[in-house]
Design a protein around this nucleic acid. Structure first.
Length: 737
DNA sequence: ACGTGTTGTCATAAT
DNA sequence: GGATTATGACAACAC
């Protein structure tokens, strides 16, 4: 059981991320919600650590967790939670819910590009399945991606064969042919139709139990049965794709996989692979997964050699396909961060992704759990330093889409830099602009009132509940209390008791709550030594005043103050708020806490019970007004701060969106440019083959092809075209085409 | 001494 | 209309 638990706690997160990277959506909700609530908390974030507190309202709730109808908590609670989740989701790798679906690129008999995961039923992880089955499924999926990539390379080769002039048998051990193909993208128009068809056949991938191979000579689909086991595949791949070797080796493998016996020519595994290899232990599977990832990186890097411009025009993701050299041009974009010690630490064996997840917040996600670091988590430094995955030309596979979402920012920068000819300095500038704050210096990780700090405080206090300090906090729920003795007093008096302990359970903190922890070592540098006259504090009763700092070691300032004190009464006066001192001076017979926090009816009853002078009544009303206003001011400030933070986040979101849209725009522009080139080449080809009645070619200087309104194509003298084009602009565009 | 951040308080408007 | 809340402005205070 420990064995399983170890893998679950340390490996589940990594597995989830890994599988997400390779295109497998994992349902972790079942596990997280029913079995591992802490994990869910770590991944999805604390649920309510960023909500403000209104002490006077808590007493009206059943358990301290409810929200007063008039409280801003009501909408603020949900809004904050939602926004926080959104913020977290921005940079976190998203953990999809409710299903495990493997995108298995497959090849179907209808010669249509399809992705199995889009239509195939999802594999839902339920608790009935063993983890081993799940792991094996994952391995199978990962392997299928590797093999899919082999198919892709295979296809590319067949593409070259089909497009070759003589359809000669290709020498797989030579890349000379590839270079030749590279050099003649425009010379194959004669074979364009067939080439298109060949491409469709070649790219026709499918996952499943059968592997349909496209015959290089006839173009027919040849179904093949597959029986290669996971181990066999891994051994084959590992033995054949050693790192650092030349691409020629890959060709040899492709030759084997495509043309030799059944033991090597079948690439896709049956989904019931766990049954095929039930003896594989989890560690082996994990190593296999890592090996697969490494192999994928290798294959992706090798794929860069194969991309030819003609393929870009087919069905290859343009922006992916056009980045074959980005790793060489911009290694520093990913390299330093990936190789940074923090990344290595985060991906260490003892604290894998968990620490990064739990400690990250909206402001430092990029540095702890960003997409870039995700690659760093799973890719060997030597390879991920070149970020092959992000820049690798691949077909429209789920890895691509997932990576694109997770690494959008970085990729966008790279794309912008390369596509638009940005200088590296410009790219860095844009990156800094995207990453930088809005100048407000509201990094939540440093703000005492920020959600992250609140969460930290909560976790720290709850995690050390055995200590004297936090014991006071957790037992009395005295968030915001000045002393634990006061809390005890409050309980004894029962004035507003009954809700503080429940309140503490949920670790909700008010705006000023951090003052409670100012003596905690880890928080000493955060909070000033302001002592609040908090509404819940019963310290207003002079007779019950106790020295402060019973919850921790005294600060030097407190010691100095205490040294200066000449009497206990002076000390009490020093520690009391002005209103408390006034109340004491006026001999108000009840606490300021009651004055401030009692509901109006009880407050009036309280006043009626005692015979008070006008001065006392006026002071009591002032105390109540000021006390409520003080809380209101605190809430107001907290709201203001939150608003600023949210706006800041909104600015970041908009910047990301802008970068994404810019990237898409560049892709479209490039696509249009390529289409125009293609149309132009077709135009030239058609035009040069046109002959007049005498069999002579039309001189290009005098004639041009024009699209008729009914779709026909006409040969027109340029003089006529010029006249027509003077009127509408559209025709001029047509003329250019 | 000065700047900055935090907090309490007041005045006022809004609820 | 009174009670409460929200918020800008100011002052006091701590660092």
């Amino acid at each position: 059981m420990l064995y399983l638990k170890k893998y679950f706690t340390e490996g589940l997160i990594q597995f989830t991320i890994l599988l997400s990277l390779i295109g497998v959506r994992v349902d972790v909700d079942t596990y997280l919600s029913s079995q591992f609530p802490p994990l869910r908390e770590i991944i999805l974030g604390p649920s309510s650590a960023y909500t403000q507190t209104q002490f006077h309202n808590l007493r009206n709730t059943l358990d301290g967790y409810g929200i007063h109808p008039k409280s801003v908590d009501l909408d603020y609670f949900f809004t904050t939670r939602r926004l926080l989740n959104q913020v977290r989701s921005l940079d976190h790798l998203r953990v999809p819910s409710t299903e495990l679906s493997a995108w298995l690129v497959h090849r179907d008999p209808e010669s249509v590009v399809s992705v199995a995961g889009q239509s195939s039923p999802s594999i839902v992880l339920d608790n009935g399945n063993s983890l081993e089955d799940w792991v094996l499924e994952a391995c199978s999926s990962a392997l299928m991606f590797v093999l899919k990539d082999i198919d892709l390379i295979d296809i590319l080769w067949r593409q070259d064969i089909d497009l070759g002039a003589g359809r000669e048998v290709f020498d797989y051990s030579s890349r000379q042919k590839e270079s030749e193909v590279d050099k003649r993208p425009q010379e194959e128009n004669e074979d364009g139709v067939e080439r298109e068809e060949s491409w469709r056949n070649g790219i026709n991938l499918q996952g499943g139990q059968t592997h349909t191979r496209v015959d290089g000579e006839t173009g027919e689909n040849i179904p093949e049965e597959t029986s290669l086991s996971l181990q066999e595949c891994l051994r084959l791949l590992e033995a054949t794709f050693p790192f650092g070797e030349e691409p020629e080796l890959l060709f040899s493998v492709l030759s084997l996989t495509d043309h030799e016996g059944p033991s090597t020519s079948q690439s896709l595994l049956p989904p019931q692979l766990p049954q095929a290899e039930p003896s594989l232990d989890l560690e082996q599977q994990w190593q296999d997964i890592m090996a697969i990832m490494e192999l994928q990186v290798k294959i992706y890097s090798l794929l860069q050699y194969f991309l030819v411009p003609t393929l870009i025009n087919q069905n290859v993701s343009l922006h992916q396909a056009s980045l074959p050299s980005c790793s060489q041009e911009f290694p520093h974009f990913f390299g330093p961060e990936l190789d940074s010690p923090s990344t290595l630490e985060a991906s260490g064996p003892h604290q894998p992704a968990l620490l990064s997840l739990s400690s990250s917040n909206s402001s430092n996600i990029n540095s702890t759990f960003g997409a870039t670091n995700l690659t760093g988590l799973f890719l060997p430094p030597l390879l991920n330093g070149t970020s092959n995955i992000t820049c690798t030309p691949v077909l429209q596979d789920p890895l691509n889409s997932l990576l694109e979402e997770a690494m959008l920012d970085e990729i966008s920068l790279l794309d912008l830099a390369m596509e638009e000819g940005f200088s590296q300095a410009q790219a860095f500038q844009l990156e800094d602009e995207l990453d930088s704050d809005s100048g407000l210096s509201l990094d939540s990780s440093h703000s005492p009132a920020s959600p992250s700090s609140s969460e930290t405080s909560c976790s720290s206090s709850s995690s050390s509940s055995s200590s004297t300090t936090s014991a006071t906090f957790s037992e009395e729920g005295a968030v915001g209390y000045t002393t634990d003795s006061e809390a005890t007093l409050e309980l004894e008096e029962g004035a507003v008791g009954g809700y503080q302990p429940e309140y503490s359970k949920f670790c909700r903190m008010s705006y000023q709550d951090l003052s409670q922890f100012q003596n905690l070592p880890q928080l000493e540098n955060i909070s000033h030594n302001h002592t609040y006259n908090l509404p819940l504090s019963p310290s207003s009763d002079p007779e019950h005043q106790q020295p402060l700092n019973t919850v921790g070691k005294k600060t030097s300032r407190d010691k100095q103050q205490q040294a200066k004190l000449q009497s206990p009464q002076d000390f009490l006066d020093k520690q009391s708020s002005r209103d408390e001192r006034r109340a004491r001076a006026m001999k108000i017979p009840f606490s300021n806490d009651k004055i401030i926090n009692l509901p109006v009816e009880e407050f009036n009853e309280l006043l009626a019970k005692h015979h008070l002078s006008e001065a006392q009544l006026a002071l009591i009303r002032d105390i109540r007004r000021r006390g409520k206003n003080k809380m209101a001011a605190q809430n107001c400030r907290k709201r203001k701060l939150d608003t600023i933070l949210n706006l800041e986040q909104g600015v970041d979101d908009l910047r990301r969106t802008k970068a994404k849209l810019l990237k898409e725009k560049m892709e479209f522009v490039r696509s249009i440019r390529q289409m125009k080139q293609k149309v132009q080449s077709l135009y030239q080809e058609v035009f040069t083959q046109l002959r007049d009645e005498d069999g002579r070619p039309y001189p290009a200087s005098e004639y041009s092809l024009q699209y008729g309104p009914d779709g026909s194509i006409l040969v027109m003298p340029r003089s006529m075209v010029t006249e027509q084009s003077r009127k509408p602009d559209k025709k001029q565009k047509d003329k250019k085409k």
